[in-house]
């Protein structure tokens, strides 16, 4: 399936919502935040898609107000891959977990919580993954500052 076909397929299942190709990446479909666990469950279990392999999920920071969450999935049956993007509010990024659908999403979400400060309600074990437990702040945010950080002179 191509991204366009994915968008059409999702649109047929959720007629009340808009699914567009991301203007920044033609392989990526923008999905609304309200659909986050259901639409992933559909893509995983639907016979037409069968996205049984979760590549990764990660974040892209767009200051001042936008934080994008990108999910990448693959089907070992149909050998097709799709990226889905959810746009979050940068001040209070919060998105339901998908770690109950794919086990490896668990650490990806912990990593995003650690480095970007995205909160995942429903996650079983939302602790920092890389930084020390008592670390303050989320280092991969573009406006992150730390006394140890020496900015490279241009």
């Amino acid at each position: 399936m191509t991204p366009q076909e994915f968008a059409k397929h999702l649109g047929a299942n959720y007629p009340d919502h808009q699914f567009e190709i991301d203007p920044l990446n033609e392989n990526c479909v923008l999905i609304p935040l309200q659909l986050v666990p259901q639409c992933f469950e559909l893509l995983r279990d639907d016979d037409a898609t069968q996205m049984d392999y979760f590549d990764f999920s990660t974040c892209v920071d767009h200051p001042p107000d936008r934080l994008d969450l990108v999910y990448s999935m693959y089907s070992t049956v149909y050998k097709h891959r799709i990226q889905l993007k959810v746009v979050l509010d940068r001040q209070n990024p919060c998105v339901p977990t998908v770690s109950h659908l794919w086990v490896n999403a668990n650490w990806n979400e912990r990593e995003m919580y650690d480095l970007f400060g995205v909160f995942f309600p429903g996650h079983k074990d939302l602790r920092r993954l890389m930084m020390p437990d008592d670390w303050e702040g989320h280092p991969l945010r573009k406006d992150y500052a730390h006394p140890n950080l020496v900015v490279r002179p241009d």
Binding site: M131, P139, Y144, H146, N148, L149, V150, V151, R152, P153
Partner: peptide, 10 residues
């Protein structure tokens, strides 16, 4: 890692 690193002890 001297520049642009927050996590490395210098």
């Amino acid at each position: 890692f001297y520049h642009d690193s927050y996590s490395v002890l210098k």
